[in-house]
Amino acid sequence: MVVRRGGSLEGRIASSEITPHEAFLNRRSFVAGAAALGVGALALRQVPGLIHSGAVHAQQKLATVASKYNVPDAQTPFAKATTYNNYYEFGTDKSDPAKNAHTLQTRPWTVEVSGLVKKKQTIDIDTMMKYRPMESRVYRHRCVEAWSMVIPWDGYSLGEFISAMDPLPSAKYVQFLSDDSNKDMPDKPGGFNWPYSEGLRMDEAMNPLCLLTFGCYGEALPNQNGAPVRVVSPWKYGFKNGKSIVKIVFTDKQPHTLWNDMAANEYGFYSNVNPNVDHPRWSQAHERRIDSSTFPRTVPTLMFNGYGDQVASLYTGMDLKKNF
């Protein structure tokens, strides 16, 4: 964990009840102090291991407005949400992305919108971020691996962006393709069908819960969390939410998705959180809730991750055991 790496901080964190976010801020000021001592921001950039990629975004506070979509659950500390990530392009261990994602260059960044739309276009990330006021929404985040977090995401409803893009009536699905350039991700593991591809049915994507996400904890997304733009659909397992998106494609057929290509019996296209459908290797009835306690509590998993009121109607008449 990055937070413990700075030698001078080790004692302070271990000996007190500083919350990880504060610890992270302390570390950040440590980095700032080092810079002031003459190491210089440029030098730090040239030794990427010195700074946590999240710290690169330290100055990028986002202006957000309140949202009605908040869960009351205790939030996962920032330090845990940014050091325990599944982002295989940066390594298959959950501690890898925080160490390796500093190679991701998030500016300049554009998102190409194509497929079944009135006008194909390429949009600059900063234009995209300003399109709607950014809301801070506290969502439950359930990983298919049976752990969960509670994270304040910052963004606006994907549906608002999609409407602005004017998809054709024939568009039934929307596909999200992630960055896979060798420059940004020099050590992608082999054996995967890169780029990372995910998709949603159009009515799922238009559901206001589905968040086009640019930040978390009031700051621009750390690289390992999917900077500069990702999708968050909180009623689905985490892997449904494409990170570092570079292409959005409207299609009339169900798009292929990376994990479904890898193991169709484990990862369905819908992948709605469902305590009644086991993963082949573990039960999905419970989850380890990652919060500030030393050992995560095990809590029951809720149908649609507890968002049934907003999304259950999308699946009326569907057999969710078959369409898992």
Partner: peptide
């Protein structure tokens, strides 16, 4: 790691 609190800082120590 348990005594120093390092385990508690880890997101998923059980894993």
């Amino acid at each position: 790691m348990y005594r120093s609190g390092a385990l508690g800082l880890m997101a998923d120590p059980v894993n």
